[in-house]
Design a protein around this nucleic acid. Structure first.
Lengths: 224, 224
DNA sequence: GATTGGATACGTGGATACAAAAATGTTTTT
DNA sequence: AAAAACATTTTTGTATCCACGTATCCAATC
């Protein structure tokens, strides 16, 4: 999970399984493994310096998150998204983040709006230095709003959806010349928040998210 | 997952882990274990006739589903819901099932509406014979509508949320003298579907689900 | 030459064994 | 007598080992 979505329960001690989970998830988010590629437990275990067992258990959780597919006796492969699945993920994001915005509204004051403006600036500046920074800042922006909803499970779900689409966000951002429209889109969301109308803000967030999907859809490999 | 939500990929071969997962999930849904109760891997393993290992892996998935809590070196305990978490779960259900209804709308015809009427009748009849049947029929009703959305991941998520609240639905249904209002509630949803207005149907579904939460909230043990 | 059958090698799943950590009960000390 | 420290027991986490299922490769046959 990204720092932006800090919904995870505070882990007291780091077990090997936890380390494997974080390691693999991070690699997947960065697009180090391509969709369809097989993940060999032994290799990853050797990489982190542990046995296969904790890695296998990490696979289960990653499969629950939808990041890998686990077929009996056939190992673990990176879960690519079809175009349909990408749209579906954005549909779910739209209603869940819409809900988050609506619930966050009572807690949004002038200070918070200023902070969001600052995050928007950081996002734009990061956009000039590459996809990695921009994607992180972008999640930070969405994460900040979601956090205000004060709904741990909701935040967790949204975070999981972001993890699934992150690789595609990176590809998209690297390929297209840096989207300046992104600033306007997010500025519009802030404006809606400033209006104080929860229903309107929810609608704006939904529109923003659903509007992003078609841009990414082009970069989904039509394989599978 | 209940038969009503058949979003799971058809399992070809049944691994031990899969069997353990289904076994424990079923037990949790039926309320066989109380919230806070510890799940002993060895006991469950012996019960199904396998070693601790597959059970441990099943625990990981159940934790991802939010059905149990897994703390390092402290084992696996059944995840009870606080009142806040119960409301949060219903909030998420409301927007996700609302989305499902909206997306299902184009595929709802007269035959489908008749089928839903039939399911409503079965639900009411089942209500006279105990909570077990009613809860199953109730999920069947919601599952039927969700299935029409033809969104596998969405269906899966909704199904997971149902699994979390199922124990509370049973307690509520057993305690309160059988809620006749439930029929009217669901009939209203069907009526909204009949109207053909996707937005209206979505709103009705949201209202229906959010309206249910306060009734269950009374039966959440204030512990934790 | 293509397709099917079988043998072999590989990888996954599960069980047992071992190590580390936490919980419990007992003893000792203040 | 109460509290703290220690030892014991229980339980969890990890590693190694074995068996079975799957894939691959080669040969035989059509």
């Amino acid at each position: 999970m990204p720092a932006a979505f800090s919904a995870e329960p505070p882990r007291t001690s780091a077990t090997a399984e936890e380390e494997a989970y974080r390691h693999i998830q991070r690699a997947l988010r960065l697009g180090r493994y391509k969709p369809g590629e097989r993940l060999i437990p032994e290799d990853i275990a050797a990489e982190i310096g542990m046995s296969r067992m904790p890695v296998r258990e990490a696979f289960r959780r990653l499969a629950s998150d939808g990041l890998v597919v686990l077929r009996p006796n056939r190992g673990c492969v990176v879960a690519g998204l079809t175009v349909d699945e990408l749209y579906e993920t954005f549909e779910m994001r739209s209603v869940l983040e819409g809900l988050a915005v609506r619930l966050a509204m009572p807690r949004i004051d002038e200070d918070e709006l200023d902070e969001l403006d600052r995050l928007l600036d950081r996002m734009e500046r990061a956009g000039k230095s590459g996809s990695s920074d921009w994607v992180v800042r972008h999640q930070e922006f969405h994460g900040r709003i979601c956090a205000l909803s004060q709904r741990p499970k909701l935040i967790h779900q949204i975070s999981a959806l972001h993890a699934v689409i992150e690789p595609y966000m990176r590809i998209w951002f690297d390929d297209v010349d840096k989207p300046l429209s992104a600033r306007e889109e997010h500025a519009a969301v802030i404006a809606a928040l400033r209006s104080g109308d929860a229903g309107h803000a929810e609608q704006m967030m939904q529109d923003h998210i659903l509007g992003t999907a078609p841009m990414l859809a082009e970069f989904v490999t039509p394989s599978r």
